[in-house]
């Protein structure tokens, strides 16, 4: 995905500080939400939460989203292009955080999945931190001016956002499963979680969408590799990136065909959605 000829946009001190402030906003929102959820102890029940408890995290997340938008605009100005900036990992992770924030906003106003929105916040924070670190290191520069590359990167990013949501669903599923299995013996029964069925449905939807986008990313990637042999070499299909991506694709492929592999239902499916996301992150590391 790299193109050394592309004018590189360095991460300025101001951009770094803004990104850090945005990341901290998501962490603060997580804290607000976690406290509010502490009052909803029974699974499946959503007692009314007062306006200030809803407003506080919404305002803080709104602040984070505003800062990310500012950053993206400043990166756009830096790159002197009126398209979404996709210069490097920093931009990519900003966009990931923005997409997940939108998902947070959607979940926030659903009755049964509100607790899942809370779990998204640390994920957004983590992605922001990774983006900042990679941005500071100045690694990996994409050549997003090419439409194929742009399509490839966009599908990778949106697919990653979907899989991140699936990973959050998997974590929530394991926590809910453990709580139900322990039958009141555990001390961390502090927050209400949606029912296992609701979490499973959410995870499945996220994974199906992510799988479709990953497939699109793979097709565009293969097309580029075949068309431009210089890019990844003649034996591109045995490169660690491609092999790992294939494993990720297989893992998620098995998850969306759970009916054919029913033994993967439940906690195993949740574990695989987490492992799949970890593998996907490894692909990013391999690409550095």
């Amino acid at each position: 995905m790299s193109n050394p000829a592309e004018p590189y946009t360095h991460l300025s001190i101001l951009q770094f500080a803004t990104a850090l402030a945005a990341a901290v906003s998501f962490l603060a929102a997580f804290w607000f939400e976690f406290r509010a959820l502490g009052r909803q102890r029974s699974a499946g029940q959503s007692p009314p939460v007062n306006a200030s408890e809803r407003l506080s995290p919404a305002l803080v997340v709104g602040n984070g989203v505003f800062l990310i938008t500012l950053l993206l605009i400043s990166r756009m100005v830096d790159a002197r292009r009126m398209t979404l900036p996709l210069s490097d990992y920093f931009d990519a992770f900003l966009l990931l955080a923005l997409v997940l924030s939108m998902l947070w906003g959607y979940l926030q106003w659903t009755r049964h999945l509100r607790a899942l929105a809370t779990f998204l916040l640390p994920m957004i924070f983590a992605l922001m931190v990774v983006g900042i670190v990679l941005g500071l290191a100045g690694v990996r520069h994409f050549g997003a001016h090419n439409p194929w590359v742009a399509a490839h990167i966009a599908s990778v990013l949106l697919g990653t956002a979907s899989f991140a949501a699936g990973c959050v669903g998997g974590i929530a599923y394991l926590l809910a499963d453990r709580r139900l299995k322990k039958r009141g013996r555990i001390g961390w029964d502090l927050f209400a979680l949606p029912s296992l069925a609701s979490i499973e449905k959410f995870t499945r939807h996220a994974i199906v969408l992510g799988f479709a986008l990953l497939t699109l990313a793979a097709i565009t990637g293969i097309f580029r590799a075949v068309r431009d042999p210089q890019l990844m070499g003649q034996h591109w299909y045995v490169s660690p990136k491609v092999l790992l991506t294939a494993v990720v694709w297989l893992v998620y492929g098995s998850l969306i065909n759970i009916r054919l592999v029913p033994v993967l239902r439940g906690a195993r499916c949740a574990w695989l959605s987490i492992i799949g996301f970890m593998l996907l992150m490894t692909v990013f590391v391999v690409m550095l």
Binding site: R39, Q40, R41, S42, A43, G44, Q45, P47, H112, A176, R179, L180, R183, L193, P194, S195, L196, A197, S198, K201
Partner: peptide
């Protein structure tokens, strides 16, 4: 949240079911 969580055995059973199924 004084009324949160059921306190009778029968209703707790139903609560646990709600934790599994939607």
């Amino acid at each position: 949240g004084l009324g949160d969580g059921h306190v009778s055995v029968a209703s707790v059973g139903v609560d646990l079911l709600r934790g599994v199924f939607d």
